[in-house]
């Protein structure tokens, strides 16, 4: 293994949590199996860590999969520079608490050319600061496998993605030419320069994620819970207005609302929802009656028709 890790974590405080229900247990078992398989088959795996709820679950499952050993690969965070402040604070806390190897990467071109979601539009900004940045980081680390937290229920183009999703040396995904995937036997054979994205949460739904967070007491970014926060309304979305770089446009006013976020990304592109859900119970019962999907608050999905599929072909996670 190229990454060496000193031994730690030989003691786990005996948990008093009730056992998982059979449904979550089955999902957990499948995810752990995938983690172990990838870690064993690839030379330089990495885990994409986006700090969101799915990443929190992914991290928890990775710790479980390799216990009592350490997670045998680093975490990679593609930092656009426009994440919510609380996300970065949470990330650093997790790294400290769980003794993680974190690689954070920001596209240097972004800083040099001053690429922002305001000046370049969401499509171009995402292309440079997320897609291009991810490619740079994966190339720099020479990673041959990257874990991601994508779920098949999230978006139509993801419904057909494999658990081991093959990528060409330039990180492209060819949806027409995916390897067949039978049983739980995964084909991890690749040539030099090629890579695989591995998705241990493929079969989880949004409700599963929340119920698992609750059952396993997994820490998440506080932005998921409702609180009175400053917002500004823009393009039909409520945007968090706490970062000094957010300049109000003519006609816009800042106001306070009790809101929370259903997904977390770059703050200028992520819409809040009005909600009083301050606990996991609240969030789950809100979800059970939700009438819109979680990606509804994400501006980048709606840029153009077949938006996500196009981004994925180009290497977006």
């Amino acid at each position: 293994m190229p990454h060496t890790h000193p031994e730690t974590e030989l003691h786990n405080p005996q948990s008093t949590k009730p056992p998982l229900d059979p449904h979550l247990k089955a999902l957990e078992n499948e995810a752990i199996h995938i983690f172990r398989e990838v870690a064993a088959e690839f030379e330089r795996p990495v885990m994409l860590y986006s700090i969101g709820k799915d990443s929190s679950v992914l991290l928890h499952l990775a710790r479980k999969a390799f216990y009592p050993g350490r997670i045998p690969f680093p975490l990679l965070h593609v930092d656009t520079g426009w994440k919510f402040r609380e996300m970065i604070a949470f990330r650093d806390e997790m790294v400290e608490k769980y003794d993680l190897d974190l690689v954070a990467h920001t596209n240097p071109r972004g800083a040099a050319e001053n690429v922002t979601p305001f000046t370049h539009g969401s499509a171009l900004y995402t292309d440079i600061m997320k897609t291009e940045a991810l490619r740079q980081a994966l190339d720099a680390g020479q990673y041959d496998a990257a874990f991601g937290g994508a779920r098949r229920d999230e978006e139509a183009s993801r419904a057909k993605e494999r658990i081991y999703s093959f990528r060409t040396p330039d990180h492209r995904w060819d949806p027409r030419n995916q390897r067949p995937e039978l049983w739980n036997v995964y084909n991890g054979m690749i040539r030099k320069g090629e890579s695989v994205r591995a998705f241990p949460l493929s079969n989880w739904t949004e409700v599963d994620i929340w119920r698992y967070i609750q059952a396993e007491e997994i820490p998440i970014v506080p932005l998921y819970f409702a609180k009175k926060r400053p917002i500004v309304e823009r393009d039909g979305m409520m945007i968090l207005a706490e970062d000094p770089r957010l300049e109000l446009l003519p006609g816009e006013t800042k106001r306070e609302e009790v809101i929370r976020f259903r997904t977390l990304g770059c703050f200028p592109l992520t819409g809040a929802i009005r909600s009083n859900a301050t606990t996991l119970d609240d969030i789950i019962s809100e979800l059970e009656t939700a009438t819109v999907s979680e990606r509804q608050g994400r501006a980048i999905d709606r840029d153009q028709a077949g938006s996500m599929e196009k981004k994925k072909r180009e290497g977006y996670f």
Binding site: H23, L24, E288
Partner: peptide, 13 residues
């Protein structure tokens, strides 16, 4: 009509 789908699961998917 919106009846909330309850989520307690006592069996595997």
């Amino acid at each position: 009509s919106q009846e909330p789908a309850r989520v307690a699961r006592d069996s595997r998917p």
